[in-house]
């Protein structure tokens, strides 16, 4: 029996592991190595050990508001990521709940309705937003024809956040849907039978049980958002950078692959710390239950 179990386990794990290890772990090791090498004019690396990249990343710059400009960009990216995650959760949670309360057919249709806009093209959608938010765009044309003053929206952080939320919303709704759909409403009834109010039921029963979906959705939205670099360019006018822009610059015009790699290594480490913490908490919860 034990042997059979092992067989099943390896069969389940093998294809996924093969892909992840070959196409993600191996190249990531390459990136770690790059971050300790010497930059080459024209891209790529010179195979000579160097700590320049990390020294640059952690160097002190008296002109900057924080340690240096890179930290400023990291902090802005995380702040925008949090804001986007929060908005997506606030909109996505009730939306996912609404969907799961429909009949099976309606449920599926609604789910598809939410994802179908994303089968057009990312750039096309973002440009459509630009058209809506432009100085001479849809909203402003309507405003001015109604006799109101035009509001500058394009090339502001507001437009960037709109674009980020738009791009990330389905990544919140889908995991939430997956979690909520499996929810056993008997728990709610049981709690109500015991005289609990709706708010209490939500706080004590509903929310904790849907937490895995909340965590997964938030994680996906946050991670995908902070990796963005097209939205700040198109809707934000490219005036301020996110980490994605910083990285694109290093692997692009700056020809500084080691520095780009170092930024990536630090970024991935920061994210991994968060995720390992989450896995720990999960493991502890499992152990206690």
């Amino acid at each position: 029996m034990e042997k059979r179990r092992k067989l099943v386990l390896s069969a389940l794990l093998l294809p996924g592991a093969l892909w992840i290890v070959l196409l993600y772990v191996a190249p990531s090791i390459l990136i770690v190595i790059y971050s300790f090498l010497t930059r080459q004019m024209g891209g790529g690396v010179i195979w000579a050990f160097s700590l320049d990249a990390y020294q640059k990343l952690f160097s002190y710059n008296p002109d900057s508001r924080f340690i240096n400009d890179f930290v400023v960009i990291f902090l802005r990216t995380f702040w925008w990521g949090l804001l986007t995650t929060f908005i997506c959760l606030a909109v996505g949670y009730p939306l996912a709940f609404f969907i799961t309360r429909q009949k099976a057919g309606t449920r599926a249709v609604l789910l598809f309705l939410i994802i179908i806009p994303f089968w057009t093209n990312f750039l096309v959608r973002t440009y459509a937003w630009k058209f809506i938010l432009n100085n001479n765009g849809l909203i402003n044309v309507i405003l001015s024809s109604l006799g109101f003053r035009r509001i500058p929206m394009i090339n502001t952080p507001f437009a960037v956040i709109i674009g980020l939320v738009y791009g990330a919303l389905p990544f919140m709704v889908l995991p939430l849907y997956a979690a909520l759909d499996n929810f056993n409403y008997r728990y709610v009834e049981a709690a109500q039978d015991l005289g609990a109010s709706y708010l209490t039921v939500f706080r004590k029963v509903f929310w904790p049980l849907t937490l895995p979906g909340v965590v997964t959705g938030s994680l996906l939205v946050f991670i995908l958002t902070i990796g963005q670099f097209v939205v700040p360019v198109i809707l934000g006018g490219g005036k301020v950078s996110m980490i994605g822009n910083l990285l694109a610059q290093q692997f692009g015009m700056a020809f500084d692959w080691p520095f780009g790699s170092a930024i990536a290594v630090v970024f991935i480490l920061l994210m991994m710390i968060g995720i390992v913490y989450y896995i720990r908490v999960e493991a502890r919860k499992e152990a206690s239950s």
Partner: peptide
Amino acid sequence: ERGPGTEIFNDTWTAVKAQ
């Protein structure tokens, strides 16, 4: 022209875009 020393343009650019 790209040559030794012109890396500094990227740092200046990062500084402009950080603020």
